[in-house]
Amino acid sequence: MTTLSQDLLDLSDFAWQRLRDRVEGLTDDEYLWEPFEGCWSIRKTETGYVADGSPFAPEPAPFTTLAWRITHIVDILQEDRTATWFGHQPLAEDGQPPVPASAADALAALDHAYAVWRGRLAALSPEDLARPMGEVAGPYAEHAGSSFALHILDELIHHGAEVGTVRDFYRGVRAEDPFADALAGEVTPAERPALLAEAAAARRWEVVPQLAGLGFGISERTKSGATAAHVAAGTGELDSLRFLVEHGADLTLTDPRFGADVLGWANWGQQADVVAYLESL
């Protein structure tokens, strides 16, 4: 049986990896994007960047940009209280939370802030988690350390979800169709080798044969590690799976998330027809 400390670490790592995957490829334009007037973001001053804010937030709360949200997550994870409220002291190398000026700076700051938080969380003893935090926690003095750890994880989870939503919003208003670009000869297999797998992940089955004909790899993987055959098997797209098999799809590859091959995905998705087909090969 796992301990409370290990459960907290596992939840933290899971939430963190989900967020880190969602910010991969972030650009400066997206990082600083303000879709309408009145957004809170970060602003350049004579001494650096600062985040918009007020001790008394407007009602309703303003829309906050990715720059503001990521800066806020960095601050939550790295601020001194994620050590001191547990009765520990920050390490000299922990530093203070920055206000990142660019997307690249933001990703580096996120990585560092999470490393700081995880190190502090991993250092907590059962006694740290069980005892009241005391005067340092102000109105939460009587709350156990575990309640504060759960609060920080809640902040990571819900602000991470907001970041993902804003990225979806940004992508939606700047809709692109890389599959159409590939069919028009504007994207090549060398430039985007996993495009056929991406088409399967997006359920664009109608373009999969066309992309295969243009030389896009049948057994390439999406960022999450699934091939087109994994997706077809798991979602019951038997005709598409047959096409992939006939064109050399490697059915033995396992994905890193579930550690399952193509048949494993079919079984997990309860796709009886697909299972029967694969077992007949």
Rank of each mutant, 00 (worst) to 15 (best):
T188K: 05
F258N: 14
S280D: 12
S146W: 02
L91I: 02
D52H: 07
D13P: 07
E142T: 11
F148K: 04
L278H: 09
A182S: 09
Q210W: 08
L153F: 05
K223C: 02
D154W: 14
D181L: 08
D28A: 00
T235M: 09
G185H: 12
E34L: 05
D255K: 07
E24F: 00
F56T: 14
G269F: 01
D21C: 04
A122T: 15
D261N: 15
G269D: 09
T2K: 14
V208M: 12
A113H: 06
G119M: 04
V166R: 14
A61R: 13
V274P: 00
E37V: 01
T65D: 09
L121V: 15
P60A: 09
A190D: 14
H230Q: 03
D21Q: 07
D94K: 02
T2W: 09
A276N: 11
A175K: 15
W33H: 08
A149F: 02
L214P: 04
S219P: 08
E24K: 00
F36R: 09
I73D: 00
L110R: 10
R20D: 01
G25R: 02
A266P: 03
E198D: 14
D7H: 11
S146D: 01
R167W: 10
L156K: 12
T71G: 14
A123L: 11
D52A: 10
G225L: 01
I218N: 13
Y170R: 06
V136D: 12
D128L: 00
R221N: 06
S280Y: 02
T188V: 09
P126N: 00
R242A: 04
F63R: 13
T82H: 04
A260K: 15
I152S: 11
A201I: 03
E127C: 00
W33Q: 00
E93D: 09
G38C: 06
L129P: 03
S146H: 06
V274W: 01
D7C: 14
L129E: 05
A130D: 07
G38V: 02
D255P: 04
E34D: 00
A190P: 06
A106W: 07
L19I: 04
E198A: 13
M1P: 08
R43D: 08
R43W: 08
